[in-house]
Structure formats: structure tokens, C-alpha cells
Amino acid sequence: VIEKFQLMHENAQLQHQMDYQDANYEKTVHSFKNIKRIIHDTHQQFLYIDECIKRNELAEASEHIKITLNKIEGAYQRVNTGNLVIDALVTNSLNIGQANGIKVDTQLNLYSQKVNIERYDLCVALGNMLDNAIEASKKVKIAEDRFILIKIHSNESALFIHILNHMENEVAHLQSLKSNPDIHG
């Protein structure tokens, strides 16, 4: 009976991890769809600039290039460490932070694109850390205090992840406040 209960518990945890992994893959797909949309929009801008050049309206073309570059810069915060998991999850956090008035700073420096951790495990660990930081930051009432610092670096044998964020209330005990605390860390 105990063994059966343990297997049921392990299955439930594995299912939760699979669901979490699926959600992270959805975030990655969403990031790629955003890239595709940006490429499409940029193409339209180039068509307009090309027409300005054909009509010898160079000042208009130059001004439109400046406006377009500013809009792209402001709208598209992309992380590019070379590691797809880190890039997708941190980029997603930047986008969520921007949408929720959370200032997100990054310090990312990988020794190599390849890190010595399975992608699945990295998705679960990094995804949970980022989700927790965003969730806590959303609860902070003072807008200037909504801040997350994401530091990720590696050397030839280890990956280091440090995420710092403000919280609305100091917590002395580190226990999940989520429903089902057995499957949340």
C-alpha cells in the first residue's frame, strides 16, 4: 500500500513537471512567433523606405529609419546567450516584466552555449525561479520596487543562477504559499 502511494505521488509530481515543461515550450513557441511577426513588420517598413528612396525623398526615408529603429529597440528585448533554454525563458521574463511594470536587468555570461545540465531540468529549475520572482514582484505595491536581477554565468564545469527580486512582505520561513505546497518549492 505504501509503495503504491509512493508511486502515485511520484506520478503526480512527474505529471506536474511535464505540464510545467509543456508551458515552457509554449513560451518558446510564443517567442518564435513574436520573432516572425517582427520580421514581417520590418519587411513592411523596408517597402516604405524603398519607395521613399525611389521618389528621392531621402530625408523622409532617413527619418523613418530612425523611428523604426527606435520602435524595434524599445519593443524587442532579446536575450542571445546561444543557449536556447536560457534565451527563451529569460526573454519571456523580460517581456512579462515589461508588460507588468517590473524592471528586469540581466547579467548573462556563459562560458559555452552548452551547459552541463539537461534541458528539461534547466527548464524546470530556471522556469520556476523566474516565475517565482515575477509572481513576487507583481505583488509589490510600490512601482519603483518592482525589480528583478537575473544573473546567469557558467564556467567549464558549472552553471550559476542568481535571481534577486523585491517582495511585498519579508518572509522568515521559506515555505510555498501556493496551493499544493508539496509540488512547489
Results as ranks from 00 to 15, higher is better:
L84C: 12
N165F: 15
I38L: 15
V79W: 00
L126M: 02
N92L: 11
Q113T: 15
N83D: 09
G82P: 01
Q77L: 13
E156D: 14
L130A: 01
V90N: 07
Y120E: 06
T91R: 13
N155K: 05
Q44F: 03
S137K: 00
R119H: 12
H43V: 02
H162F: 13
I96D: 15
Q44C: 06
Y120C: 02
I96E: 15
E156T: 09
A143C: 07
Q107C: 10
Q45L: 04
N80S: 14
I134F: 07
L58P: 09
L69I: 09
C52Y: 09
G101V: 01
L130N: 00
I86P: 08
R78E: 14
H40N: 14
A61N: 09
D50C: 07
Y48I: 13
H153G: 02
D105C: 11
K54I: 10
L108W: 10
K138Q: 10
N92R: 11
Y120R: 02
H64M: 11
N80G: 12
I102Y: 01
I67C: 07
N80T: 12
L110M: 13
L130K: 02
I117D: 01
R55L: 13
K36T: 15
L89Q: 06
A158V: 14
L130C: 01
E118L: 09
H162I: 15
G101C: 06
D145Q: 05
G74S: 09
I163P: 03
F160P: 04
L108E: 08
